[in-house]
Design a protein around this nucleic acid. Structure first.
Length: 579
RNA sequence: GCCCUUGUAGUUCAAUGGAUAGAACGAAGCUCUUCUAAGGCUUUGAUGUAGGUUCGAUUCCUACCAAGGGCACCA
């Protein structure tokens, strides 16, 4: 439709012998101003020294003369000189029919068809709790992955995890002090216990000199693997915490294709650093990327870009830093998927500056990778109250937030009749939706202020609101089936409902979301659609044998439910049929 | 000091250079003999400051003010 209108405008301008390089055709924010609007008259008024309104009038007359398409009902001038297009009843009925035919494929596009993209996100560390920051990255990463898939890309999901380092030593020290987890514990409980041992070790590391020495000693042994007892505890703890993560991914709806471990990236990265050292090795200029400074091996990125800075890659203790491991990781990703078109990494924005430095180093070593890496950063979870405790007084982890939220949902469900298993399942899906939506409704760059008092929202602008609208539509459809009213997009009344004016835009929203890597466009769109549908629902009885146009309204309800289901899916949110 | 983000109703967020700056929460009122009231309908209120570019600026540019993050051996 957009292309048709653009052509119409261009033809009209051609006939009027007006030259124009560029103009916008967009959806006005307010539906009163039509379904499409162009600023073309405003854009050219100045250069040809004419009053924009007069010019708009002229163009409109010509457009009306050329318009034989039944999809455009009327064209009018408004405001300073906008030309607004109102689409016809027939167009909306056809769009409802199209949605019914395409069902869950409606909204897909092929702009990334044939592209291979790897998305790395979540990145929790074994032996440490899965905290709410991981929840946030996971929600964003999963949604972006799904949106890219919906645009035709082949997406691989990757998780990069710190399986070595001081945090592991702290946890193992804690386990040595407090004892191993009871064997009869559930895996979740064991993982939680290990998280507590980590906190215990971490606290002692800062305040207890003896503990610090012991932990540093354990840290060395983790690398050398010389101590059998420590090796055994390591394996135990690693398996328990990694398995607990899997349970969370299942609940969150993520399935990773690749797991990269930090310990394996260190050597790969170190080799690359050594191969690209400075003059000492007598390498060519382009290979002199890293150099020695104060006993460490560094990359002076400011030589290439004044906005970047120097980072240490190998410490003076001859240990590889995170930068070196990241270098190894990126290289390894391209080795794993050689024909990969894009490698996306999603992290909090505190990592932005040094990732730029690492990216610069990588693009010097592998110019062919330079345009195939993208770092997307999001804000952080912040707390309105300033306290980090959950409502039950414990340290807040991703899991405790998920559980608290699910319990809140259960309380609201007391008047609903469900079996216990179904009740739990729905409560969990609604809880996840509440959390994910609160992350995805805003653009990803900004921080998220999380208020424990208000907690996660179930009303208004929220994930459960979307799910509720879907469940409600589903209940309408059940009734339609029972009463044997079949959907038919051809028997419509003259009235055009607001929800119709929104549904056909879904593919554009998906496209926009994919091109900008911004899930919130979809989230905001779904709220608008849900609101329009709820309004539609509230104003009439949809399934009504007395109403001849009831089959059309049922068809519209189907169209709404397809779009809502697909949209929620793109946010990584499940849509229960009942709630 | 330098670099990167971000400043919009009381609060939390929207607004591809366009029209009367949208929602939600909060507050006040109305609404289930109708398909799920986690709903619907009313009412209330905002672009940090100062310039600039533009027919038109929340959006782009400059300066200032404010918040957050980063700036060598942590990740």
């Amino acid at each position: 439709m957009e292309q048709e209108i653009k052509k119409l405008i261009k033809d009209a301008l051609l006939n009027l012998e007006i030259e124009v390089s560029d103009f916008a055709l967009e959806h006005p924010e307010d539906l009163k101003n039509g379904d499409y609007s162009t600023n073309v008259a405003l854009a050219i008024a100045k250069s040809i020294k004419k009053n924009p309104k007069v010019l708009a009038e002229k163009i409109m007359v010509e457009i009306n003369r050329l318009n034989v398409d039944k999809n455009i009902e009327k064209v009018e001038i408004a405001g300073a000189g906008f030309i607004n297009f109102h689409l016809s009843r027939k167009f909306f009925a056809k769009s409802v029919e199209e949605i019914l035919n395409k069902a869950e494929d409606f909204g897909k596009n092929k702009v990334l068809s044939g592209q291979k993209i790897m998305v790395e996100y979540t990145d929790p560390n074994p032996f440490k709790p899965f905290h709410i920051g991981h929840l946030m990255t996971n929600a964003i990463g999963e949604s972006i992955a799904r949106i890219l898939e919906h645009s035709g890309a082949e997406v691989a999901r990757a998780n990069y995890q710190g399986d070595v380092g001081l945090h592991v030593a702290k946890a193992i020290w804690g386990l040595l002090q407090k004892g191993l987890p009871e064997t009869h514990f559930s895996n979740t409980a064991k993982a939680k216990y290990i998280g507590e041992c980590y906190s215990f070790g971490s606290g002692n590391y800062d305040n207890n000199l003896k503990a610090k020495e012991e932990i540093d000693e354990i840290n060395k042994k983790i690398y050398t693997r010389e101590d059998k007892k420590i090796n055994d505890i390591y394996t135990l703890g690693f398996d328990i915490t990694m398995e607990a993560f899997e349970d969370l991914y299942k609940m969150l709806g993520t399935k990773f294709d690749f797991y990269f471990l930090e310990s394996q990236m260190a050597d790969i990265g170190r080799e690359i650093v050594n191969a690209n050292m400075g003059k000492a090795e007598g390498l060519e200029g382009s290979r002199r990327i890293f150099e020695e400074s104060d006993g460490a091996i560094v990359f002076k990125a400011e030589k290439y870009d004044p906005k970047l800075h120097t980072r240490v890659f190998i410490t003076s203790q001859n240990l590889p830093t995170y930068e070196t491991k990241e270098l190894g990781l990126t290289t390894e990703k391209f080795k794993t998927e050689p024909d990969m078109d894009l490698s996306i990494v999603i992290t909090a924005n505190e990592q932005m500056d040094y990732m730029r430095v690492v990216a610069k180093a990588i693009s010097l070593i592998h110019p062919d990778f330079a345009n195939r890496m993208k770092h997307i950063t999001h804000g952080m979870m912040r707390f309105a109250t300033g306290k980090m405790g959950s409502r039950k007084g414990n340290v807040i982890t991703g899991e405790s937030l998920l559980n608290d939220t699910r319990d809140d949902v259960l309380e609201r469900m007391t008047d609903r009749e469900f079996g216990n298993v179904e009740r739990e399942k729905i409560a969990s899906e609604v809880g996840v939706a509440a959390i994910k939506y609160s992350v995805l409704k805003q653009s990803i760059g900004g921080d998220i202020i999380y208020d424990f008092e208000k907690s996660i929202s179930f009303e208004g602008d929220s994930g459960p609101y979307l799910q509720y609208s879907y469940a409600r539509a589903n209940s309408v459809l059940e009734k339609a089936q029972k009463e044997n009213i079949l959907p038919d997009p051809h028997v419509f009344s003259e009235e055009i409902f607001e929800v119709e004016k929104l549904l056909y835009k879904f593919p554009e929203v998906v496209f926009r979301s994919a091109s900008l890597y911004e899930p919130h466009y979809i989230a905001n769109y779904l709220i608008e659609v849900a609101r329009a549908y709820n309004n539609f629902y509230g104003n009439m009885i949809i399934v009504n044998k007395e109403d001849k146009t009831s089959p059309y309204k049922v068809a519209l309800t189907y169209a709404f439910s397809f779009v809502m289901k697909t949209g929620l899916d793109l946010l990584g949110i499940r849509a229960p049929k009942k709630m």
